[in-house]
Amino acid sequence: MTVDQLRDIAGAVPDPEIPVLTLHDLGILRDVQLAADGTVEVTLTPTYTGCPATAVIAGDVETALRTAGVARINVRTVLSPAWTTDWMSQDGHRKLREYGIAPPVACQPAQSALSAPRSIGLTLSARCPRCGSTTTREISRFGSTPCKSLWACLSCAEPFDSFKAI
């Protein structure tokens, strides 16, 4: 198998928490190499340092490659360069919207509440993935997984998750 084929197999593994996204869509598959002794070296980076899905993802990549007939696999996790939501593919953005999660906006440092101390939601409004309204409200900057925040749409009254820009 060529390195490109191996990269496609590893890249097609779905994220365990948001299964509509592949590792390629997320941008966390950093590298796939074929060593001289036939070992496939896969490099992943976590979304958040404490993300519990990281170990599961490494196991899923190994399983996918093994199923494809690769005997020797070495999956390692690197922190640098630090993952950013800017690495998510445009296809990933579309899939997230269709799944009901607002995709991340272009990365900017998390703003401080100090810059406008009496308002609470300071980042750009997330667009409601159900009705498309931008009349939305951030409920909490921390959601059901480390990478998401919790929002409510004021037009269709539905709550929704938004992917945090980091």
């Binding site: 958040y48 640098s80 630090a82």
Partner: peptide
Amino acid sequence: SALAAKAVKEVAYHRDHATQWVLR
């Protein structure tokens, strides 16, 4: 330095969270 590059982005959210509550 690798950990710092990763963690500083997480901690920015923590700091903002605490700031909002202390203000409120």
